Amino acid sequence: MRFLPLALSAAALAVVLVPVVPAQAAALPAVQFMKIYYNSPGSPDNGANSSLNGEWAQLKNTTRKAISLKGWTLRDKTSASDHVYTFGAFTLGAGKTVTVRTGKGTDTSTIRYWGRSGGTFAYIWNQTADTGYIRNPSGKLIDSCSYNSSRVESVNCL
């Protein structure tokens, strides 16, 4: 019976010494926002394609394996269905980034185009405050990035 308090003290000490993983060490999402450039040069304007392409979101594959983004979505906070970009057949290489521009253009391995046009209502990212969301094909939220400032033109999401 004399050893019971000692055993309980040792057990309590073991619980206290369990390592705690700091928040910074938590696993990164497989694909995360790097940056959202929401106030394109020259805006406000008439929504010319060059200005639409001046706003963009950049995503990074944080893993050591290529990820198929087919069916993944990128969107802003609005519930408008035309504010959703859905990736077609596209693979993002390990550690690589892809930039999704709002306007029209020819897709490459590093740049995708939302394909929007139609003047000032074609912009996706609000100039003062918004939130971007990345979801996998099953709709699971993978990452988000918010901003609330009209004093700068972009937000670093890391």
Rank of each mutant, 00 (worst) to 15 (best):
K35F: 02
W72H: 04
R112L: 07
T131N: 13
V152D: 15
Y85N: 06
G42N: 10
N136G: 12
S51A: 09
V152R: 10
F121I: 07
A129K: 09
W125D: 01
S154A: 13
S150P: 13
W56L: 06
D76R: 10
S150H: 08
R151Y: 06
L69E: 01
N49Q: 06
A26Q: 15
W125Q: 07
N53G: 11
E55S: 12
A25G: 14
G93H: 01
T62G: 09
L158E: 14
G132D: 06
W72M: 05
Y133T: 12
V18Y: 05
R135V: 06
D130C: 07
W125R: 05
A94L: 03
L13G: 13
P5A: 04
A23T: 11
R116S: 12
Y123C: 03
T102R: 06
T78A: 15
K35L: 08
P41Q: 03
N148P: 10
D130M: 04
E153G: 14
Y37V: 11
K96E: 15
G95E: 03
V20G: 15
H83D: 15
G42D: 08
G54V: 02
K77D: 15
R112I: 01
R112W: 01
Y113F: 07
T110V: 03
M34K: 09
K35D: 14
A26P: 11
R151T: 10
D45C: 08
N156W: 01
N46S: 11
P41C: 03
C157T: 00
D76S: 14
T73P: 13
I142D: 15
